[in-house]
């Protein structure tokens, strides 16, 4: 008897009480968190920074959840609402995934090739620059010590 009830309930479900398709918002949310957490948290760990071992799987998981949303909205539209929302959220997830992947694999490689100047340096050029406390620092003061000189992009 209960089975019959269920069956008839499915076939006549009015739009207003069809089930909410939670994967519609869960998918893009997971993709978003997966991408953003790389920059604000996981990038501080060298292994996870060099390759996003955690963030890539999370982003892909989000896309998979989003695919479920699509499947439900279009395949079982008798049960679930929101075809348009499912399509929009899928588009968002794909776009963000593509952006994240291109940052990791392409955008961050957009550096000029090492110049001949850099390649040819055998002795460090002399310089005097101001440090973070306004003190002048002269490279020649470090003669007799080993030294790491590193250049970074700044604007952190």
């Amino acid at each position: 008897m209960s089975l019959e009830n269920k069956k008839s309930a499915v076939s006549v479900t009015p739009l207003s009480i069809r089930m909410r398709n939670h994967s519609v918002w869960l998918g893009p949310l997971i993709v978003f968190l997966g991408a953003v957490s790389y920059f604000i948290y996981f990038a501080q760990f060298p292994v996870l920074r060099d390759f996003p071992w955690i963030n890539f799987p999370v982003v892909l998981l989000g896309c998979w959840v989003n695919l479920i949303a699509i499947k439900r909205a279009f395949g079982r539209s008798d049960l679930y609402r929101g075809k348009l929302m499912a399509a929009l959220s899928m588009a968002f997830s794909i776009l963000l995934t593509a952006l994240f992947a291109s940052y990791i694999g392409y955008i961050s490689y957009q550096l000029p090739a090492p110049t001949e100047t850099t390649q040819g340096l055998s002795i460090a050029p002399e310089f005097v620059l101001s440090d973070q406390n306004g003190q002048e620092v002269d490279l020649s003061d470090f003669r007799g010590k080993k030294l790491i000189v590193t250049f970074y992009r700044g604007h952190w």
């Binding site: 550096l111 090492p114 460090a124 003669r143 250049f151």
Partner: peptide, 18 residues
């Protein structure tokens, strides 16, 4: 801005590694 690069200088200021 600078492109990233790191040099190691010995005690005489020679670049021994980059």
């Amino acid at each position: 801005i600078a492109r990233p690069a790191t040099f190691i200088l010995d005690r005489e200021g020679h670049i021994v590694w980059k």
